[in-house]
Design a protein around this nucleic acid. Sequence first.
DNA 1: CGAATCAAACTAGTATGCAAGTTGATAAGT
DNA 2: ACTTATCAACTTGCATACTAGTTTGATTCG
Lengths: 230, 230
Amino acid sequence: MPQTEISRLSAPTPQTASDQIFQVLYAAVISLELPPGLKISENEIAKQMNVSRQPVRDAFYRLSKLGFLLVRPQRAAQITKISEQAVLDAVFLRTAIEVECLRAAMEQITDRDVESLRANLAKQDMALKDPDPAVFHKLDESLHEKLCAISGHPHAWVLIQEQKAHMDRIRFLTLSKERRVSVLEEHTNLVEAIEKRDAGLAQVTLRSHLSQVRRDLTRIQKEFPDYFLG
Amino acid sequence: MPQTEISRLSAPTPQTASDQIFQVLYAAVISLELPPGLKISENEIAKQMNVSRQPVRDAFYRLSKLGFLLVRPQRAAQITKISEQAVLDAVFLRTAIEVECLRAAMEQITDRDVESLRANLAKQDMALKDPDPAVFHKLDESLHEKLCAISGHPHAWVLIQEQKAHMDRIRFLTLSKERRVSVLEEHTNLVEAIEKRDAGLAQVTLRSHLSQVRRDLTRIQKEFPDYFLG
DNA sequence: CGAATCAAACTAGTATGCAAGTTGATAAGT
DNA sequence: ACTTATCAACTTGCATACTAGTTTGATTCG
């Protein structure tokens, strides 16, 4: 998930130290390895990563602009607590973008595209048996990305990913086999609606799928109150 | 237009030198005062602004992440040329978000809200007489922002603004009294559809309004080829 | 024993210097 | 005249030092 920012315009530029640090920190925040509320300092990370403060500072800045790190002058930077509002906002925006992609996709989707979606579903079914949840997750992402590609708006995936990131910390708290099974079910329903060329049904199914996080949110918020704002 | 980035989570933090430089540069890029393709260096700006390279460097970095500055190691930073694709992408994304806001707004809009939209239109009509185009532009933005607020998703405005920025350089090349008149017309049609509680018509009207940039794009691209990529 | 005080240890913002690489003009060679 | 080689003047990435402000915890006073 490194390319979360709007770098589609910038030509291939070498991987800087700042980039690497950003990626490491980003992954750590999303996976809750760095728990919400934790205070970290540029110096501290710099020592751990064996670089100077400068590239760490750059990475901190990027994280702060994504909303995952609160950095204020002369104060320790702090992993942002999960904001219920921010999650709901992310769901709304992701839905807005992805529904529009679906809408565009339905107007031009080919049998070949549907086949490709079905192939992904088959892989997801296989992945259910894999003990590593990441395998399924990758395919999950891939399906949604494929939808953007089919719509002719692959760039939309960048923004969707950005919003998705705000939902991911919740997802990491709801990891379970049962959840993956029901996600696959929802994916299957979506692809079937698309296959039937039923744009209305497809849209309703997609909206419902993306709204699932909302239902999780309340439960998780009670279960891990320390991770949340307020 | 300073708050273009995702800083909704960060608490009120003092204005740093880096912030100020960013704002100045951002405005200059959007208004084409710094034309696409121009090469600028950290040192150069630092001298002009009478600060060290560090805050300039931070500002450069922010601009690059927004897609307005191409910065590569050991090479002069360059104001990005306008990419036709990037503009089309921005139109698509802005439309996606704003249509979803409209959709949500139509489900709960009150007479008072409509009144507030109408009041804005009246001000726009007055602003047509103002020699300064910025007055009209402010009200234009305000109308769209109000729509987000009514929908209960004020945060969406942040993302819309971000996408809008990619369309603004085009807008600055199409500034004219006639254009403002027709924009007001489109705004009026939109508000009237909303007032009639005709969600379908309102959506079509909004889509058409936002698509206007597409029509300008081809013309402008021929008129100012130097500003464009390729 | 609790509350106020103050200093030491932190924090990030900024300034500056060096290193590594690009660029463009000039000079040399054909 | 044209190509090629060279080199000086740039560029940004990173390291380090310094500044100003916050935090924290021990100490002192009530």
